[in-house]
Structure formats: structure tokens, C-alpha cells
Design a binder for these strands. Structure first.
Length: 950
RNA sequence: GCCGAGGUGGCGGAAUCGGUAGACGCGGUGGAUUCAAAAUCCACUUCUGGAAACAGAGUGGGGGUUCAAGUCCCCCCCCCGGCACCA
């Protein structure tokens, strides 16, 4: 069973579709397509470009070429885009359908560490293997547009974009307050001309919390500043900036990671513990785009879940920032305020204590100006303990901990003194790193207050029997002076107005999104186009000196260390150079400089690759204007299909880069991907013991039947359950696409993956089911080809039923491709081949075109047998007649009281009156309603009749 | 805890607007063909009762709206994915 290689022993079926014939047909046409350049799509201005056609830009998320080769999940999305692109091409679109390689990254480097083979060697081998595998599927990629992110003439432009961002700042006032990136020279001109006040614009991340709002410190007139200060001012504005801040440090990977790369306190890659560590790293000021990244989501044709995930990651929340004057130990007023962010300013009368994060500046200040109440030793002990806690520990143990700072703040409304504590349930990275704790209305504060015996004051009246926890619902304010009796929203606006007037606080919006940590201490990534002079100042290299090539390294063994040790530091000849050699303008050519030794993260290359596809050979621009205008148009890529694991990684980063490039005039659309779709994961089966542990598939036997299975574990004969599980090496349930193609051919493989279920759903692979799709291809073959002669066989006269079914199939397949509903399109093909026995030449011609997007090889073979000399891929999509979709006679159900009792067979345009009369006269119905009163008859013409009788 | 997407035969899944639940495929049963098998073709295949006609039940559970509910509303349960002490 299921052995498709089985050859018929009968001599009269010389032309039966078999696995061997599939190999022959598929390889032959793949070679021909390649020779003919069938899938090469010229650019505007090039030979063969037809400017009268509309464009369709359809992309897959390009793969990371791993040594393991393609798994069955890859071709799922790729087959979907392939079908759409073939269909669009046949409909007369110029279709841009490219493929490339996301080839920098950690796995190749880790493999290199184990084996000593250079990552470039393993990566290129893996790319060759991936390309071979993809070509075996017959995908219609325009391979002339292929590139890898590791190619120097590609990463040259990645570095070019980095420099663009580095040489930009975000003008928050531009475009009516929407904000826009502008060249840093504009800022300098503004400073020189006095149009803009010169301020040291501290990064929000460098702000330690105590004291004034981080809206910049006056630096005095530009002319009065020395060069170093000027540079410091300008650097503090850059969209790519170097900053000391608390980052996610992963000792096992030996690199710092972005927030988006940490999941549940572990590194996304490798699942190693992550610690918080203050480090000096390159950051991208993505937070400047918080509002635009959020607003832009509204108009995108993206899955709801993905938009929600991004929106929640950006995490906009409205509230107020309030200042509480600081009173040091001994009652001395400091003259500065502790600023807190709250979404519930209405509860300020219930703020019975304050909490600052352990990294907050006020903690250090409390130790410095220690009063009687300050236990410096305990405080320091707590801060040290908190900083050594990994994120995973924090998540696993949420027991409240904290220490009193020994200082107080004054409630600006009541003048009461409120104690200030530090506790690690407050994050330095959100808001101001300080909160006013209102245990009456916040459960976390309630828990803390209970544990440390702090007072609890309710300021919102809870329901009568409510007790024992914080009340977060609405209700009239109590214990709240001038707010008493007001509901939450009224109280909020009243108190914000009052505080704004008194300059105590103001309305404020906060985001969860943090700036993007962009430097990694690894080897296999793009070098930064940055050098440092001997004073430690950073400089961008000139565009004319790009690419900054990744130097070869023989030893990429990382030094396990608590501090970053960038591997490129080992390339001493490369690191130590001169301004002239590095191509830095504005320094003396002989000045000694050292290169930045961090590298860019894997995301860098994928942030803009869609642009390069439009014009991958351009040496002068990252993408030529005409190519970009045509392919990207107003709204970018027309369809982008890939996994949802990048919802807040690649898909957020790419939008950010694109917006910056838009602001700087490099691209013309504000968003890169208009329509996004996620293919579901292809899972497999595994077996589960009673204790929920999993058993590999080869250690289990089924003692029962297919219908009533009884699975037992071979080792100890205990029963196990069959469950759906991810494919993994350890469960031995991984399917290799090469094996499936060898057994059934690529056309069958493509059909099977598209027929498994809805594209977006996660679906279990079931080898048993493939045979059904193999039979479909065989039926297609047998419908067209005489198995004894190997020649096409034709009917002289078209069979009415077949003709009708063909129109239906063409209509359904076209509609379903547009809806990305491939499983139902294939069902329509089954229905057709089940009805049709033999076709006329004209019918076959239409049929072959309609299956072309799904089974391109067998379609191409039949197409040429039909006498065509050009590819079916460039034939016209067949048309159908609306009138052929209507039946001569339809079946109308007759219900009595909503239950199906009989059926009428009538012409589809029978009117309501006739239907009612026919229904009431129906034999079965007459018997049923005998002795009852007909109260009502509901008739939906063309649909049903329902008789209400009792 | 919050957010998102789901739950339909033995299995994968269909079902525009509320209008014949289970299209199509796998598996299964019976038959034709064959010396025999494979392949192919035909019939049946949601469950229960029944020889059948037919009757009853049925889309995770409970309630509701409606002539009519897989589909709409309310409550609950389960599974998957994301976020998670975010003030």
C-alpha cells in the first residue's frame, strides 16, 4: 500500500502516470523553464518589459539556509505564493516573485565553533542545497533576482541604510506633530541659525529617574560650544546612538539581545537564561516611531492577531505624570520631585507609599544622603540581589520583595509625607521607573502593602460585600477630597486639569516599546560602518568606502565572560587602521582609528530585502527609482506570506526601517507590506504516556485497527495516546520533502500540502493521505492520455455534464485562489475529474490551463502535447460562462416546523407561490400536516420551504 | 491574569446573507474485473433503532432569539498561540 513506485506488469499500460514518469516530466520541464527563462520578469526599461500590464509583487519570507535543508513547513507557504503568482501571470500581471537567503546569523556561527568550518563555507553549501530543493518543486521564482544577505554587494546597502539612520534625527515637531526623521545636518543648521535651542537631548534610557523630566538640558548658544560639546549634543539626537543602559545579556550566547529576542526570560534562540546588565551598546531610536508604528497598523491588510500583537508590544497607555517633592531623611526638602507615571491619577489620595526600581537614581541618592531611617547595608544588599536575578527567576517567583529607602515624598494634594521604597516589581524601563502605590485600587500594591504592613486607603467605593483585595472597578470616589463622588473618568480629567494648572503633573502617554538594541558581540553578521578616534568619538565611514567587509577570522571561539567580548576584536589588523584607510571624512587621513567590533543582528539584512528584489544588480542605488516606483508603488508588496513567529520581530523592524527610509525620501510608500498572510505550522504525530511525556513514533505499536486504535509503547507494553506534536528530531517524526518527492513527485507534494486544510491553520502531516492527491494527478493524466498509446485522447462531441462541471471548476478555482482557499479549489478539481470521462480538445485546453498553477509540470507536459510551443505559465487564464453555473433543476427542501420532511425538484427560478403550492401538495407533507392548522409558510425561492403547522 | 485564534464523523476538513450539516480526500465495508494480486471502476459509509421504508439524536456544554442556528446573543468548559509585576 502506498508504494507509488510499483510498476505495472501489464504491457498495455505503457503510459501510466507513475513516480518515475513524474520525475521524468518534472526534471525535463524544470530544465526547459530554466533554459527559456520562463520565469524571468524584466524591469521597467528592460527588453521584454510590458508597461501596459499591472504589477503584482508577491513574496515569501526568505529562509535561513540551515544545514538540515528544507523541512515540509517551507514549501507550504512557497507553494501558496507559487500558485497565486502563476494565476496572476495568466491573468495578465507582471509578477515579481523572487527568492533569497537570510544568511547571517547564530546557527552557522555555532556550527563553526563546534566544527571549525568557516560559517561562510557552511552557509554557501546550505544555500546551494536549499536552491536545489526549491527548484525541484518547480516554483516560478525569478532566480535572476536572487541574493543572500551575506553578499558584500548586498550588505554594502545594509550598511548604507545604517549610515542614513546614524546621520538622522527625529524632529518631533515635523508634519504637524506627527514627527519625521530628518538629516542630522538640518539639525546642525538649525542650531547654527539659532532656529532651535541647543539642548543636550538625553536618551530616555539614560535618564536615571530623579529630578526633572528628560526633555533636554540647555547647552547654551552653538557658537559658544567647543567641538566636543557640539558633538555630544548632536550625538544625543541620532536615530542610531551609542548608549549605556540596562540590556538583556545572555552569557551562554555571549551577546546582548533585543527585548523582542527574549521569551519568558530565556533567549529565543537556544533558550538560555538572560540577565539584566548595564552595557554600552548601539541602539535604534524605534520609540520615536511608537505612534506611527501603531497608527500605520490600521490600514494594513494583515491578520488581526498580528496587528494586535504589534499593538500590544508597542503598548500605548494614557495617564499622567505627577511630581512628588522629595524629603530626605531628617526632613530636609531636596527641592526636586520624584516623577511617577500613573494611569489612575484619580487615586492619588490613596497613594500610601511610593516604589522606585532598584536601578532608580533615587536609591543611590538615599544611600548618599542616608538619614537615620536609611539602612544602607540592607539597601545595597537588595540592589545587588535584584541586579543578579535573571528574568526567568523574576517570572517564576513573583513574591513581593523590597526595602524602605529611609526618605519620603510629599503628596502634593494633601501635604502628607509618604515613605519611598524600592522593589523589583517596578521596572526601570517603563515610565519613569517609579510609581505611586495605591493598594486600595491595585492588586500588586495591595500584595506589597499586606506583606510590609503599609496602610491601605480605598479611594473608589467598592460594592457592598467587596473585601480582601484591591478594587479596580468603577465607582464614586471616596477619601479623595475634591474628587469625592466622581466616577473614575470624571475624577481623572478633573485631577489632571488641577495638576496641570498647579504645575504638579500633566497628561502623558507611555509606551512599552523600548529602543532596539542593535549590536551583537558575534562574528557572523554585518560589520558596522563606524570607527572610533583616539578620544573615543564615533564616526561614520564615507559612503564611498562601503562595503566595510567582514574580515576573515580563523578563531571564532567565544570567550565565556560576564562582559561583552566582540569576536571581531580578534581581527587586530582590521580593527586598527587610519581614518584615510577606513574612508572617514573630516578626520586627518593619518589619524589612528579603531573599527567598531560589534556586528549587526540577524534582523538587519531582512529589514529591507524586499526593496533589493526590485533591482538587485544596481550598483549605484539600493534600488533604482523606476524599479521602485513600479514594483513598490504606493502601498508596497502586494502579498507577503510567512510564519507568524515574526509578528513583533522582523515585521516590526522592517516597518521601522521602511518608515525612516520614507522620511528620508528613499522610498515612496510609508508601509512595506500591504497584505500579509501567515501559513500555519505543519505538525506531526507523537505518542504520550500517562505522565504526559512523549514517546518517539518508532517506539510505539498499534495493536488495534485504524478505526479503533490501541497504541502501546514497545518497551514496557503500556498504553499511550496519539497526539499532535511539533516535528522534532527527538520524536523521529520529521518528514523530509526530498523523500516525498522521490516517491510521488513534486506535483503531488504541492497538491497534498495545499489540500491538508486552510493555509492559515496548523495541520498534522499524515503520510497516509498523500495517496489521494497522487490519485488525482493520475486521474488527470488518464483523463487526457490514452494509457496504451501514450497519445492524447479526445471526445468528438462535448459531454454536457462535463462541460458544465468544467465551467464550475474554472470559476471555483479562480475564486478560491483569490481567497487563498486552495483546499477547496483542489476539491473542485476532484469533482471535475470524477464527472468527466473524456474531453474534447477544446475542453482539455481549458482544463490544462486551470490546473497549471497547482500542478505546473503535468500541465506543461499536457500543454505541449496539445501542440503549444510556449509555456502554459504564460497562457491566458481560461474563462467561464455565468450561465453554465446554474442548474436546470434544483432540489428544494421542505421543512415542517424546521425539520426536513421532503424535497421538491424544480427549476431554479420557480417563484414563491408555486413553491408553496407544490410543498403543500407534496404527498409526505399532506400526511404530516393532516389534522393540523397551517399557521404560516415561509418560502425562500431557490432555497427552501418551511411550513409552520400545529 | 489579559489579548488573539479555535472546538464539526474513525481521521484531514467543507458549509457567501441564519435556510438540506458533513462537499472533497483518507480510512472502512461490499461488489465488478483478474487464474490470483496490484491498479482501476461501481455502491455504501455521522450515530442509535430498524430487513427496509422510516424515526430519533447530532457541529465542546448550558440557556436564549428566530418559522429556521455550526452560523446571532448570554454564561461556562477545553485546546492552541502571544504577552505577562508595564503602574
Amino acid at each position: 500500500m502506498g508504494n507509488a513506485d510499483q510498476q505495472s506488469s501489464e504491457s498495455d499500460t505503457t503510459s501510466r502516470y507513475s513516480a518515475q514518469m513524474a520525475q521524468d516530466i518534472e526534471l525535463r520541464w524544470q530544465k526547459w523553464w530554466d533554459e527559456q527563462g520562463t520565469y524571468i520578469q524584466p524591469n521597467p526599461g528592460e527588453d521584454g518589459f510590458d508597461a501596459s500590464k499591472p504589477k503584482y509583487f508577491c513574496m515569501d519570507m526568505f529562509p535561513y539556509p540551515s544545514g538540515a535543508g528544507l523541512h515540509v513547513g517551507h514549501p507550504e507557504g512557497y507553494t501558496a505564493t507559487d500558485i497565486i503568482c502563476r494565476y496572476k501571470k495568466m491573468q495578465g500581471f507582471n509578477v515579481l516573485h523572487p527568492m533569497g537567503w537570510d544568511a547571517f546569523g547564530l546557527p552557522a556561527e555555532q556550527y563553526a565553533i563546534q566544527t571549525g568550518v568557516h560559517p561562510e563555507v557552511t552557509t554557501k553549501t546550505a544555500i546551494d542545497n536549499f536552491r536545489r530543493q526549491l527548484q525541484r518543486f518547480g516554483f516560478c521564482y525569478d532566480w535572476s533576482r536572487e541574493f543572500g544577505t551575506i553578499d558584500a554587494d548586498y550588505y554594502k546597502w545594509t550598511q548604507w541604510i545604517y549610515l542614513k539612520v546614524y546621520h538622522s534625527w527625529f524632529d518631533v515637531d515635523a508634519d504637524g506633530g506627527k514627527g519625521r526623521a530628518r538629516p542630522i545636518n538640518d539639525l546642525i543648521q538649525d542650531f547654527i541659525g539659532g532656529k532651535r535651542k541647543v539642548k543636550l537631548n538625553p536618551n530616555a534610557a539614560e535618564y536615571t529617574g530623579a529630578g526633572d523630566l528628560p526633555d533636554g538640558t540647555d547647552a547654551g548658544p552653538w557658537e559658544s560650544l567647543d567641538n566636543e560639546t557640539r558633538k555630544a549634543v548632536v550625538d544625543s539626537y541620532r536615530l542610531a546612538y551609542l548608549s549605556q543602559q540596562t540590556v538583556n545579556w545572555c552569557p551562554k550566547l555571549g551577546t546582548a539581545l533585543a527585548n523582542e529576542e527574549v521569551k519568558d526570560g530565556l533567549s529565543e534562540r537556544g533558550s538560555f537564561p538572560v540577565y539584566r546588565k548595564p552595557l554600552r551598546q548601539w541602539m535604534f531610536r524605534i520609540t520615536a516611531y511608537s505612534d506611527r508604528l501603531l497608527d500605520g497598523l490600521k490600514d494594513l491588510d494583515w491578520p488581526n492577531s498580528t496587528k494586535t500583537q504589534q499593538a500590544e508590544w508597542i503598548g500605548r497607555s494614557e495617564g499622567a505624570e505627577v511630581g512628588f517633592p522629595i524629603v530626605l531623611g531628617g526632613g530636609m526638602e531636596l527641592g526636586e520631585s520624584l516623577r511617577v507615571f500613573t494611569t489612575r491619577p484619580d487615586t492619588i489620595y490613596g497613594a500610601t507609599y511610593m516604589v522606585v526600581a532598584p536601578e532608580h537614581g533615587l536609591v543611590e541618592m538615599a544611600m548618599e544622603f542616608a538619614g537615620e531611617q536609611t539602612d544602607v547595608k540592607r539597601l545595597q544588599g537588595y540592589v545587588d540581589w535584584a541586579s543578579n536575578r535573571s528574568d526567568i527567576e523574576r517570572q517564576e517567583n513573583k513574591e513581593k520583595t523590597g526595602v524602605f529607602l529611609g526618605i519620603h515624598v510629599r503628596n502634593p494634594l494633601t501635604d502628607e509625607l509618604i515613605p519611598v521604597w524600592t522593589a523589583d516589581y517596578v521596572m526601570m524601563s517603563y515610565g519613569t521607573g517609579a510609581i505611586m502605590a495605591v493598594p486600595g485600587q491595585d492588586q500588586r500594591d495591595w500584595d506589597f502593602a499586606e506583606k510590609f504592613d503599609l496602610p491601605i486607603v480605598r479611594t473608589v467605593t467598592p460594592p457592598a460585600d467587596f473585601d480582601g483585595e484591591a478594587y479596580t472597578g468603577d465607582g464614586p470616589a471616596m477619601n479623595s477630597g475634591m474628587l469625592d463622588g466622581l466616577m473614575i473618568n470624571e475624577a481623572k480629567s478633573k485631577i489632571i486639569d488641577w495638576m496641570s494648572e498647579k504645575h504638579i503633573g500633566a497628561k502623558r502617554v507611555n509606551f512599552k516599546l523600548r529602543d532596539w538594541l542593535f549590536s551583537r558581540q558575534r562574528y557572523w553578521g554585518e560589520p558596522f560602518p563606524i570607527v572610533f578616534d583616539e578620544r573615543g568619538n564615533h564616526h561614520g565611514v564615507g559612503e564611498d568606502s562601503l562595503p566595510v567587509r567582514l574580515p576573515p577570522l580563523t578563531d571564532y571561539q567565544p570567550v565565556e565572560s560576564d562582559t561583552p567580548q566582540p569576536l571581531l576584536a580578534k581581527a587586530t589588523d582590521w580593527v586598527n587602521t587610519t581614518a584615510g584607510q577606513a574612508g572617514v571624512h573630516g578626520l586627518h587621513p593619518d589619524e589612528k582609528v579603531t573599527r567598531e567590533t560589534n556586528t549587526m543582528p540577524g534582523w538587519a539584512g531582512s529589514c529591507w530585502y524586499y526593496l533589493r528584489y526590485c533591482d538587485n544588480k544596481n550598483n549605484d542605488q539600493l534600488v533604482g527609482d523606476a524599479a521602485q516606483d513600479y514594483w513598490m508603488g504606493e502601498s508596497g508588496v502586494d502579498l507577503y506570506i510567512g510564519g507568524n513567529e515574526h509578528a513583533v520581530l522582523h515585521l516590526l523592524y522592517a516597518r521601522f526601517w521602511h518608515m525612516v527610509l520614507f522620511d528620508l525620501g528613499v522610498v515612496k510608500s510609508e508601509e512595506p507590506f500591504r497584505k500579509l498572510f501567515h501559513q500555519g505550522m505543519i505538525t506531526s504525530h507523537a505518542y504520550q504516556r500517562a505522565n504526559k511525556t512523549l514517546v518517539p513514533i518508532d517506539e510505539v505499536e498499534n495493536l488495534g485497527t485504524e478505526e479503533k486504535p490501541e497504541y502501546i509503547e514497545l518497551a514496557d507494553k503500556t498504553p499511550v495516546d496519539r497526539i499532535v506534536a511539533k516535528m522534532s528530531k527527538s520524536l523521529k517524526n520529521v518528514v523530509n520533502p526530498d523523500d516525498v518527492i522521490a516517491e510521488y513527485g513534486a506535483d503531488t507534494f504541492r497538491l497534498y500540502e495545499m489540500y491538508m486544510g486552510p493555509l492559515e491553520a496548523s495541520k498534522p502531516w499524515n503520510t497516509r493521505d498523500i495517496i489521494g492527491l497522487y490519485r488525482l494527478v493520475q486521474k488527470i493524466w488518464r483523463l487526457c492520455v490514452d494509457e496504451t498509446t501514450g497519445e492524447l485522447k479526445f471526445a468528438d462531441v462535448a459531454d454536457d455534464a462535463a462541460e458544465k462541471q468544467l465551467h464550475r471548476m474554472i470559476a471555483k478555482v479562480g475564486e478560491d485562489i483569490e481567497k487563498l482557499s486552495f483546499n477547496t479549489a483542489i476539491a473542485a478539481m476532484f469533482e471535475f475529474v470524477n464527472v468527466a470521462k473524456v474531453l474534447t480538445k477544446d475542453q482539455m485546453d481549458r482544463f490544462v490551463r486551470a490546473i497549471g498553477p497547482f500542478t505546473p509540470h503535468v500541465a506543461e507536459e499536457l500543454w505541449h502535447m496539445l501542440g503549444h510551443e510556449t509555456s502554459v505559465a504564460i497562457a491566458d487564464w481560461p474563462s467561464y460562462e455565468e450561465s453554465m453555473l446554474v442548474d436546470d433543476e434544483i432540489e428544494i427542501p421542505i421543512q415542517v416546523m424546521g425539520k426536513l420532511r421532503s424535497k421538491l425538484h424544480v427549476s431554479p427560478d420557480t417563484d414563491a407561490k408555486t413553491l408553496e403550492a407544490l410543498a403543500l401538495a407534496d404527498e409526505k407533507i399532506v400526511a404530516l400536516i393532516e389534522g393540523k392548522t397551517v399557521r404560516k409558510v415561509v418560502v425562500v425561492p431557490g432555497r427552501m420551504v418551511n411550513i409552520v403547522a400545529n
